[in-house]
Design a protein around this nucleic acid. Structure first.
Lengths: 170, 170
DNA sequence: CGTCATGATTGCTATAGTACATATATTGCA
DNA sequence: TGCAATATATGTACTATAGCAATCATGACG
């Protein structure tokens, strides 16, 4: 959209925000594809046990602990009835467990099973491993360069909202 | 796998590969989530017109130009019959078009329609835009830091294989 | 106790994606 | 010409996801 190149248009003040050039945007896109590969590889080993939407449920439960059916349905952005049957499949697959709430017998609490927990941990471990493999090809100073770049970028980008990554099923 | 820490085991030679520390791995994971958000946001506006698997087809056609049915089926890692009906839906949706090959009347060539092309371009544009928005919060020197980090990382990671990102549906 | 609200499930229906086996059309070659 | 190989499409069947409407169980409040 905005083509104006501040470097060419006028004197750029140091430490002030500037329009990013083509090169840094391009490199960002390349890096994003590379990281997408990392994410995909970390998921691959468990994809025979869970689908992507199912994995998302595991992650939510792993982050927030046991939750009510309705609460989970809201977080996943789906209809309650959809999630009820969704849960059926995951229970059948041994990934989650239904249990009655102690104080309110209407409520059904969903929690991770050992297996569901294990899958979550496995993906996290695998993702760190994949990253490590890439980084270990670099020298110490190069790793510092990566660290600095990622640090600055992540701070500027912030964490994606849950409903955003939901689009990708994770 | 390889636990041996060269830094701890012996004198570390400058410019030699070293085991990455916790911090840089951690920052990489954070950055990967941030970039996942960028990808997701760029996809969001077109998800009412195409599904993720369908979008993947658009990208392949956009990269390689018109392809035969069978060729596409292979690239997408699906059964030919599966892709035939898959194509039915996309043709019905006005995203791709079937056409007879000129020299071999057995072959059916799939190409992007205007609409399919437009959607592809829109996502690309949107992704650059999303990245630009993030980067424009940074000063020039900070953008340089990001550029350097992404550059080094992307080089070490390489492009993900098509069958890897396929796992995520893109 | 009755009524209303809340939380979950079930009946029904629809779509996308998947694959195996089979049918059809076309080409190439003996 | 006839037969095998190739490229695609169809018959059939299944799973996952999705949602609306209705139902059932429970809790809250008058």
């Amino acid at each position: 959209m905005t083509i104006s190149s501040p470097g060419a248009a006028g004197a750029s003040r140091p430490d002030a925000a500037v329009d990013p050039g083509f090169e840094v945007v391009d490199k960002s896109l390349t890096a994003s594809r590379a990281l997408l590969g990392v994410i995909a590889r970390s998921l691959a080993p468990v994809m025979d046990a869970v689908t992507l939407p199912q994995f998302r449920v595991l992650v939510v439960l792993s982050n927030f602990g046991p939750l009510r059916m309705g609460e989970l349905a809201v977080r996943l952005g789906t209809n309650q009835s959809t999630f009820s049957r969704f849960a059926d499949r995951m229970v059948a697959g041994g990934l989650i467990a239904r249990s009655a709430s102690t104080e309110n017998r209407r409520e059904v609490i969903i929690s991770l099973t050992e297996e569901g927990s294990r899958i979550c941990a496995e993906v996290t471990r695998s993702r760190r491993q994949e990253i490590s493999v890439v980084l270990s090809r670099l020298s110490g100073p190069e790793q510092e360069t990566v660290l600095a770049g990622f640090e600055v970028f992540a701070r500027a980008a912030g964490e994606p909202r849950a409903d955003e990554t939901l689009i990708l099923g994770l």
